[in-house]
C-alpha cells in the first residue's frame, strides 16, 4: 500500500483508508473500502432540463473536466446510475417522469439537486413549476446558484462523495431510511 501512495509520478492515487498494515497484509473495515471505491467511481445520470444543463456541459467539457473526480462515465440509463443529478427547472408535467427515473435507479442511490429551480423553484414561482424536487424525491445535496458555476457543481459532487464515503453499509436497510422513502410514497 505505502508504495502506491508514494508514487513518484504525478498521477494522483486515492489515499488508502485507515487500517493496520504489516508485511504482506493490510486490514481495515469493509465499509471503508466500499466507501472509498464507490466514492471514486460515481456513475452520474444527468437529468438536465434547462440552463443548468448547459453549465453541466461546461463542467463536463475541457476546462473543468468532471472526469477528474471519477465521474468520467455518464450513465444515461437510470438502472446503472448511482447519482441522479437534477439540473434545471422541473415543471409539474415533468414531475412524474423524474419520479419514475428515481424509482428505476437501484440502491444505493444519491440525488444532487443543482440550481435554484431544482432546489426550490427558483425565480419561477409560477403555476406550472414544481417548487423544489424534494416535494417528490429525497435529495442529498443542494447546489445553489442560478445557474451554479461549474466549480459549484464540482463542489456539490465532492459533497456527495463525502456522503458516499462515510455512509454506513447498513444505512439503506435501516428503519429511518425506509421511513424516509415511505414519506415520499416510494417503496
Amino acid at each position: 500500500m505505502s508504495e502506491i501512495i508514494n508514487n513518484p509520478s504525478d498521477i494522483k492515487v486515492v489515499k488508502a483508508p485507515e487500517g493496520f498494515e504489516g508485511p504482506g497484509f493490510f486490514a481495515t473495515s469493509l465499509d471503508k473500502v466500499v466507501g472509498m471505491a464507490r466514492k471514486n467511481s460515481i456513475w452520474p445520470l444527468p437529468f438536465a432540463t434547462s440552463c443548468c444543463g448547459i453549465e453541466f456541459m461546461a463542467t463536463m467539457a475541457s476546462t473543468y473536466d468532471l472526469a477528474r473526480f471519477g465521474s468520467e462515465r455518464l450513465s444515461f440509463s437510470p438502472r446503472q446510475a448511482d447519482l441522479l443529478m437534477v439540473m434545471g427547472t422541473i415543471a409539474k408535467k415533468m414531475g412524474p417522469v423524474l419520479r419514475q427515473v428515481y424509482e428505476q435507479m437501484a440502491e444505493p442511490r444519491w440525488v444532487l439537486s443543482v440550481g435554484a429551480c431544482a432546489s426550490s423553484g427558483g425565480i419561477f414561482d409560477s403555476y406550472s413549476v414544481l417548487q423544489g424536487i424534494d416535494h417528490i424525491i429525497p435529495v442529498d445535496v443542494y447546489v445553489p446558484g442560478c445557474p451554479p458555476r461549474p466549480e459549484q457543481i464540482i463542489d456539490g459532487i465532492i459533497n456527495i462523495q463525502d456522503l458516499i464515503q462515510n455512509e454506513s453499509l447498513r444505512r439503506r436497510n435501516s428503519p429511518e431510511y425506509k421511513q424516509l422513502l415511505a414519506s415520499y410514497g416510494i417503496e
Binding site: 432540463t49 434547462s50 440552463c51 434545471g88 427547472t89 415543471a91 408535467k93 415533468m94 417522469v97 425565480i123 419561477f124 409560477s126 403555476y127 406550472s128 413549476v129
Partner: peptide
Amino acid sequence: GYIHRAFEKLAEHKPFYQVTPLTD
C-alpha cells in the same frame, strides 16, 4: 411543455427591469 415555466404570466407581474432575468 415539459419545462413550461410561464414566462408570459410571470412577466405580467414584474416591473419592466425585472423582466430581463426572465429573458435570460
